[in-house]
Design a protein around this nucleic acid. Structure first.
Lengths: 337, 337
DNA sequence: AACGACACCGCAAACGTTTGCAATCGGAAG
DNA sequence: CTTCCGATTGCAAACGTTTGCGGTGTCGTT
């Protein structure tokens, strides 16, 4: 009928010994006789005893749990981050509680509350786009709960964090086009209020400058959706002097560009080369396959978790906040070569 | 320095009253005077008190937590299921612990152990492909922990579950092609040892039969990867009498087919129509856009969670195991019309 | 016979919270 | 001046586990 959870007390009762003896027997404490240990362990196995993690958490004021706050799990990038987090946490004997903010501030605040209430030992967070007030984040710090930011960072808050070098990746993507002989490279840019938008644009411009190519404002178009990319591509093709390469702020826009180019009879990469910035699994299934930046989501998750564990596992580790910058490297495929 | 977690005892000590009074004051118990309530609530707010969920779990033998075991989070389908789970659970005041099996039996067993140890109130599970032994699942039942299967089901085990009607969806996908005037419809089939492979093939064949069309063995090719789809498409085109429609077991193979067709100068859908079966977000960004079956992952997650909550929230609900079959409906796009 | 050494085990407190019950107090009714 | 009642509040036990400390029993040694 009701809950069948076996406890140490049950074992103690059945064996006619005390709970403390059972506890010690299970942990192979030297004070306990071999006979008792044997009896306890056998019964425990027979009854399928599992220690009550809840009681342990309470006893030790340590839950062996880490909390994750993430904008949206359905994005390939974020779900691969979670995968990295899970694997590392799992190996260290930690359980992971995942909360989605759905890019909403109020949900994020509620998530923090829930995690603090559950007394997680540490948290990993990628802040939502909507979040511009940080009291809930300060609440985490006030409680001395170790925290690591990943991907999305709040510059004002000093914490361990791991990000990718968007600027460098964009630089290399652009340089790759330049090295392929392209001289008029367009850029589909992200919104100016998002750091990734800015960083990627800066990398693009720097690569041009370093190659003594002009930065041409008309070739930089804000386009971060599939539909906008189609419009932007048409606009580029209607110019008297169209580009010979396109560096798009993400894969979706790159694909929009490719389709439009093909529809208008442009050969990729012969006439115009295209490079994307990966948010998904699209790059391998386009025709031609799409050259793109690998964002290393899994690695980001695993590195962030390791940074967190470093603080969790030795509490007197109190180095100042560190910034771990991941190299995002270019995967060259058919669309650019 | 060390943990700054505020407890009821702290509040009691500061106010010079007992912990029980604080507890009652916080829950607005009628026995407590307004003055005391006010003082307690004000101090609690000031100190940012959050009830210790761990202690509550122990006290109530109810953790308000549900566990999820899922093969791989990085698949769009599964991550959308999780999204559905999270939203419903969150609204009911439950926390979600997600474990990945990575399609491995041993990980799945470990996941079950972890969840049982954490005394989750219920579990949602999509069994891994590798799992053919069910002792760990029986362990959940032995403990009377409510459980709901989703997507992947073990026929031998009687539990609530929610699946989609693969067969019906395939039937409709095929029928859609037939209604469009196609008479020689090929099928890229999944492996015969997976239920989805079988179900989808059966639906396909049934639709043909119901339309008095012959089931032609040469037109059914086992192809469940991008590369296999390319080969299979070439094989079809090399036949003396090629098909006029292709129903693919998933979107990836459908896209492989589309690319191959286009490469060989076939017009889609004019000469050959293509229909996929959705596992991702590809369908909107192909050219032409891909007609596909929507698997309703989010809905599956939300329905499964609701089934679970029904048992969790009223413990004397003991209806027999139920099977909830979700309609997976066809989204008609450019590749077939 | 007395003592210490040793092996083995149980008691009780603690983690933070809830809750049945008892206790206290002021005052009203008898 | 008792007695009783309502309004407040505190005590203590409980959830499952760990752990310091003390207790018991059996030896061997003097």
């Amino acid at each position: 009928m009701s809950s069948n959870q076996i406890t140490i007390k049950d074992i103690a009762r059945i064996l006619g010994i005390s709970a403390s003896t059972v506890s010690r027997a299970l942990k192979n404490h030297p004070d306990i006789s071999e006979a008792t240990k044997k009896a306890v362990n056998e019964l425990a196995k027979k009854l399928n005893y599992e220690p009550n993690a809840v009681a342990l958490s309470l006893k030790h004021s340590r839950s062996n749990t880490i909390g994750v706050i993430i904008p949206e799990i359905v994005h390939y990038f974020f779900s691969s981050v979670i995968s990295g987090i899970e694997d590392v946490a799992y190996d260290a004997g930690f359980t992971v509680i995942i909360c989605q903010s759905n890019e909403r501030y109020d949900r994020e605040v509620a998530n923090v509350k829930a995690l603090l209430s559950h007394r997680v030992d540490g948290v990993l967070v990628a802040i939502s786009k909507e979040t511009h007030q940080y009291d809930h984040i300060f609440a985490i710090q006030d409680r001395n709960v170790p925290m690591v930011f990943f991907d999305r960072v709040i510059p004002e808050i000093e914490t361990d964090h791991v990000i990718i070098d968007d600027q460098k990746a964009s630089y290399e993507a652009t340089k790759h086009l330049i090295d392929g002989g392209r001289k008029r490279i367009a850029h589909f840019a992200g919104p100016k209020n998002l750091s990734i938008g800015i960083e990627r644009r800066v990398g693009y411009e720097q690569a041009l400058k370093d190659a003594n190519l002009p930065v041409i404002p008309e070739l930089i178009i804000e386009a971060d959706s599939f539909e906008k990319a189609i419009k932007a591509t048409n606009k580029l093709l209607d110019m008297e002097n169209p580009p010979d390469g396109i560096f798009a702020v993400n894969d979706l826009t790159a694909i929009g560009a490719m389709q439009t180019l093909q529809k208008r009879g442009i050969k990729i990469p012969k006439q115009i080369a295209v490079v994307g910035f990966s948010d998904g699994r699209f790059s391998g299934i386009t025709d031609p396959t799409l050259t793109s930046v690998d964002q290393h989501g899994y690695e980001m998750g695993s590195v962030a978790t390791k940074m967190l564990l470093r603080r969790l596992l030795n509490p007197n580790y109190d180095a100042p906040a560190q910034s771990h910058v991941l190299d995002a490297n270019l995967i060259v495929r058919g669309s650019s070569i």
